[in-house]
Design a protein around this nucleic acid. Structure first.
Lengths: 180, 180
DNA sequence: GCTGATACGTTTAGATCTAAACGTAACCGA
DNA sequence: TCGGTTACGTTTAGATCTAAACGTATCAGC
């Protein structure tokens, strides 16, 4: 996927989204700046969460890509095994990246690869004991930390925000599929 | 910055945030899943916007990193010049990345580097005519496209969401600085 | 059974980022 | 004025991603 490092249209963390929109209006009256107050904070928040997670995980001896891999397998429930195909579907990266991530995790003894029984030449990736205990140790740390970060919102604010974000996600997804 | 490709804790685009939280509760009762319905959609939306922008820009003959660079300079107003230092501050990437981006854009004739007059060995990066016209052509395309993507929200919903996002951004930023 | 089409996973080439090392220029206290 | 410190920009090494090429196994229709 494209990374999060380019957000022209309003990334500037030294100015608020509304200041950025105002700057465009001053420089180019009529510029369609209506989306900036939505898109810019989303990008900034994604970066804040991402960077913080990297820091937290470094202390736990695991990187974000590996956590992502192990998490998806772990929360799929017993027998803690998913095909490469399914891992790709449930992640935001390409099949090539999954292949590389699995190879790394396998080298570190966190997962195991085995041919699937259900035809179609699938490869099942499963957690080793070590992988299982690593994810158990990491999940609460990461999610607990994030819960702390968002704790400035009241319960009703949080629910309201979650609802709006879900609506927007569905909406954007629909418009993207329509336009292709 | 860390890219947007790892979002353990809930990236899975085949399940809604609430389904992911429910899966954790089923597998590990007591897991602190309160943040998932906020963080997960933020990550997903960042990726949706990012990927779409890449597609739009490919058609316009410019990449997202270059758009980011030219945008910041363009909206700073005449004389359309910023120091490398300032570019780093107003962007979400490191100084090294800025240096490389500027070098690329300079190679393509979009910007020019010149020693700054105000001491401290600064390098001023300014738009060439070609860079200026490229950004003029691209900005409306990108921002117009994004305005369309978020147009499913009513005006009041949009303002409400923008307000909550701004509050959350400030809040998370504060907690991050406090905890370090 | 064949055979072509398709699905699936891996590999490779290339892009671009970060972190850290570096090289200098500018500033500052004595 | 001088020497050390700091600010600033660039370079380099390493990590990891994407897109595309590949190789092979499986399936579907005849």
């Amino acid at each position: 996927m494209a990374d999060m490092t380019s957000m022209a249209g309003g990334s500037d963390p030294t100015h608020s989204p509304s200041e950025i929109a105002a700057a465009w209006q001053r420089e180019r009256p009529g510029t369609p700046t209506g989306s900036i107050e939505i898109v810019t904070p989303i990008w900034r928040l994604a970066k804040l969460f991402s960077d913080d997670r990297v820091r937290v995980l470094r202390a736990a001896g695991i990187d974000a890509a590996t956590l992502d891999l192990l998490s998806v397998i772990r929360r799929s429930g017993p027998p803690y095994a998913l095909s490469t195909r399914e891992l790709t579907r449930r992640t935001l990266v390409t099949a090539g990246a999954i292949s590389q991530r699995v190879a790394r995790a396998e080298r570190e003894g966190l997962v195991r690869r085995a041919p699937g029984t259900t035809g179609r030449r699938t490869v099942m990736v499963s957690l080793t004991d070590e992988g299982h205990s690593l994810i158990e140790r990491s999940v609460d740390a990461v999610l607990g930390r994030e819960a702390m970060l968002v704790s400035g919102l009241s319960d009703s604010e949080r629910d309201l925000l979650a609802g709006l974000l879900e609506k927007l996600t569905a909406d954007v997804g629909r418009r993207l599929t329509d336009s292709r």
